[in-house]
Structure formats: C-alpha cells, structure tokens
Amino acid sequence: MKKISMMIPVYNEEENVLPLYDAITKCITEELSTYDYEILFIDNKSQDTTRAKLTLLCQQDSHVKAIFNSKNFGQFNSPYYGLCQTSGDCTILMCADFQDPIEMIPRFVAEWEKGAKVVCGIKTTSKENGFMYFLRSCYYRTIKKMSDVDQIEHFTGFGLYDKSFINVLRELRDPTPFLRGIVAEYAPDRVEIPYQQAKRRAGKTHNNWYSLYDAAMLSFTSYTKIGMRLATLLGFIMSGLGLIIALVYLVMKLIWWDRFVAGTAPIVLGVFVMGSVQLFFIGLLGEYILNMNTRIINRPLVIEERRLNF
C-alpha cells in the first residue's frame, strides 16, 4: 500500500489545526482510501495553544506526527526541514490556514500516479488583498525575467513531491533553502495545476513587509546575477561620464580661465547623485554577502525541542 505524507508547517494556528486535521482525514479516508497516510505538523515555536492541540491529536491518532522546534526558525527553514522528515511515497505540503484547498489533494495524487514527480499548485486568482496580489505578480514576473532559472509564477510551495525529489532536498544540505527556486531548478516532470487561493479561515497572517522583503531578497540573491552586473555596468558608465565632465571642465577653465565662472550647485548635485548610487549598490552587495555568509556558516535548518509519534 502506497503512503501519502501530509506536511503542514504551523505557527500560532490554534483556531485552524483541529478543523484542518478533520478536513484532511475526511478527504483521505473518503477519496483516497486505498492509501496509507501520515499527517506531520511542524510547529515553529507557537505562543498560543497550538502545541497543546497537536499533542492531543498525536495521542488520539497514530497517523498524526508532530515536531516542535526549539525556537522560530523562519518561514523557509521549518517547512523545508519538515519535508525532509516525511516517510511517504509522496509528500503534500500545504499551509494551515485553509488558503490551500483541501480538494486539490486527490488531483495532486492523480497526477502523481500518472508519473509526475512534482505537482505544483499555481494561484491564478486570489481572494486576498488585491493590492498585495498585484505586488506579488510584479515580483514573480520580475524575478522570472532576471533569473537564469525559469522561476514559477504564483507558486508558494503548495504541491506534491515524490519521494525521489524529497531525497534530492535531503541531499542539498542548503542552510537557507528557497523551496520555490529549488523546485524550479531541480524538479523533473513537473505538472502545474491552477487554483483560486481562498481567504484565511481564521487568525491573522504572520507575514509583514519585512518578511516579504526577506523572501524577495533571498530569491533575488540566490537566483540572479543581474544586481551585481548592473552595479558594474552602471559604475563603469558613471565613471566614464565623470571623467568626460572633468576633462570638459578643465579645458573650459584653461581656455576661458578669466571669464569662466561655475557655482557649487553642479558639484553638490554630482556628489549627491554619485553618493546615492553608491549607497544603493553597497546595500545590494550587502544582501549578497549576507546570503553567502549564512551559507558559509552552515547552521542547522532547525533545532528540535521534541517530536511526537515518530
């Protein structure tokens, strides 16, 4: 009997874990009854009653497993680590807030049975804030054009991963994994299924502008070279223009030295423009260096506090 692993990362989802467990269990037992299954929750140091409810679920149902992290290790490390702890022939990753439709599970499995190693859920529409969806669309299109890897637009990680691809994730040993980029780069025989993203069932999102910026910079510095190439090219052009302006200024000074008058405004403007360009690219360079530094240090993805039902 083939085994399906459901992997759900959670953080302060006390209102959602029990209804989600009920919905997943009902879906699998009614529509995928010929499969064995496990439901793995990985908790990123919740501060509410999420852990108590997960502990109760593990006591009541041997199909449920839980990993409790010793602290919050971020929105990328915890799900990636959880995927690597599953034992099924395939693993389905989904969020805990019901924005990823439960009814997609049988469709994912059907595509997997046809031979797909990775099945990606692609948001074609969303009931979230329209402005945020627009910004996400701009980001996805921008990173796709800049990256050497053909990035997947509106893919959040929601999808099915064959055991062979889970083994690839285990072997990568990436201390700062960006799953969306890894799927785009390494996933063989990928199938994409569109869906409409629903509103969060309960609770509130834990993403803010900083976390969204962090995600954008991780993908940008991991999968593009254009930032540093642009800095080099623009620096070359600006230095050339600066040299030309300096030579013109010198010639005019030598020829019309007695009549040549120049105020300080051009100098001040030049200093501010050049300084702002330099600061921008120093900051961009810093993002690349931060990414490199994290990988060189090679810290563990997460540190577990405890695990249940393993």
Rank of each mutant, 00 (worst) to 15 (best):
I4K: 14
S5W: 08
I8G: 00
I8F: 02
Y11I: 14
E13H: 07
V17K: 01
A23N: 13
C27N: 10
I28F: 12
E30R: 11
T34L: 11
Y35S: 04
I39S: 06
I42L: 03
I42K: 00
D43P: 00
K45S: 08
Q47W: 03
D48S: 02
R51Y: 01
A52T: 07
T55H: 03
Q59P: 06
S62P: 11
V64M: 03
K71V: 00
N72D: 02
F76I: 01
N77M: 03
N77V: 02
S78E: 10
P79E: 00
C84Q: 05
Q85D: 03
C90I: 08
M94T: 00
M94H: 00
P101Y: 01
M104F: 02
M104D: 01
R107W: 02
W112N: 08
W112D: 01
G121K: 03
K123T: 13
K123H: 09
T124S: 11
S126M: 14
K127S: 09
E128H: 12
N129L: 13
G130D: 07
S147T: 00
V149K: 02
T156M: 13
S164H: 10
I166Q: 10
I166H: 09
N167L: 14
V168I: 12
E171Y: 03
E171Q: 08
R173E: 14
P177Y: 00
A184M: 00
A184G: 00
Y186P: 01
E192N: 12
P194I: 10
Y195G: 09
Q197N: 15
Q197P: 11
A198N: 15
R200V: 15
R200K: 15
R201P: 11
K204I: 15
K204Y: 15
H206M: 10
N207Q: 11
N207E: 09
L212T: 08
A215T: 15
M217D: 11
M217I: 12
F220C: 11
F220K: 06
Y223A: 03
K225Q: 13
K225E: 12
I226D: 12
I226M: 12
R229H: 13
R229F: 09
L230N: 07
A231C: 14
L233A: 14
I237H: 01
S239Q: 09
L241H: 05
A246H: 10
L247K: 15
L247D: 06
V248I: 14
Y249S: 07
L250V: 06
M252V: 09
I255C: 05
W256A: 06
R259H: 07
F260Q: 04
A262K: 01
G263E: 04
V268T: 08
V268G: 05
G270I: 06
V273T: 10
V273H: 10
M274A: 08
G275K: 07
V277Y: 13
Q278T: 13
F281N: 06
G283Y: 10
G283D: 04
L285Y: 12
N291Q: 13
N293P: 03
R295A: 06
P300R: 04
R307G: 04
